[in-house]
């Protein structure tokens, strides 16, 4: 247990919270999705630091799952949601 690592994790938490603004504001769908990716990377860092701070090394495995699956969402978004949405009609909510 070391309180320093917990402080570092605490510093990274506002970085996630501020990213919310981009989801709410983001003009295009990709901006919103990029924020989800930011949440993934920051989440990995927070989990790594908390794992040392709380003294639970299991958190490394959760960080591994985070790292793998955050990219999966982005790739599904690009391949399935975004590609077909705007060429055919412009009144679409996804643009």
């Amino acid at each position: 247990m070391s309180w320093m690592h917990t402080v570092f994790a605490l510093i990274l938490l506002p970085a996630i919270a501020t990213g919310m603004f981009r989801i709410l504001k983001g003009p295009t769908a990709a901006d919103r999705m990029m924020t989800a990716q930011l949440f993934g990377t920051c989440g990995v860092a927070i989990l790594l630091l908390l794992g040392t701070g709380m003294g639970t090394p299991v958190l490394l495995d959760i960080a591994l799952v985070f790292a793998l699956l955050a990219a999966l969402a982005t790739m599904t978004f690009v391949r399935r949601t975004w590609q077909y949405s705007s060429k055919r009609n412009h009144g679409n909510p996804i643009q």
């Binding site: 990029m34 990377t41 490394l60 591994l64 790292a67 793998l68 990219a71 790739m75 690009v78």
Partner: peptide, 24 residues
């Protein structure tokens, strides 16, 4: 394990970055 996590994040983020830029 830590280095493996970093490598995975590196690959995943650079690939998805290229995908987003490309379809944009």
């Amino acid at each position: 394990k830590l280095l493996l996590i970093w490598l995975l994040v590196l690959i995943a983020s650079s690939a998805s970055c290229h995908l987003i830029a490309r379809s944009a």
